[in-house]
């Protein structure tokens, strides 16, 4: 009886130790620089593509040759920055979540 209890406690210690190690390992994230750069660049390029596309469409329909493109290109750039801001905020949230747990 006593022996099995001791064994159980030993096991618990072992599991705790392993879990602790596992948590420690997961903290330094393999946040590769290229992956991060890729994420950011696709966000901004995608927003610019949409902005330019809408601008060209507007120009085609309303015959406002350069102005639709100019305005929507600028709006697209802003949207790209907004996308990046959202991605960054999500990453920050995840980081604080990881530290807390």
């Amino acid at each position: 009886m006593n022996n099995s209890k001791k064994q159980l406690e030993n096991l618990k210690e072992k599991i705790d130790h392993l879990q602790h190690n596992k948590e420690k390992k997961s903290v330094p994230e393999r946040n590769s620089g290229t992956g991060f750069g890729f994420k950011i660049s696709t966000e901004i390029v995608a927003a610019l593509i949409v902005g330019v596309g809408i601008g060209l469409l507007v120009d085609n329909y309303f015959n406002t040759k350069p102005f639709g493109l100019i305005i929507f290109f600028i709006l697209g750039a802003f949207a790209g920055f907004l996308n990046i801001y959202r991605v960054m905020r999500r990453i920050e949230k995840q980081k604080s979540f990881n530290i807390k747990h």
Partner: peptide, 22 residues
């Protein structure tokens, strides 16, 4: 509002380009 709409419309493009380019 136009900025938000563009940001929303850019979702499928960024989603697809990321996978494809990688």
């Amino acid at each position: 509002i136009p900025i938000e709409v563009i940001s929303y419309l850019s979702r499928p493009i960024s989603l697809s380009v990321r996978l494809f380019a990688n």
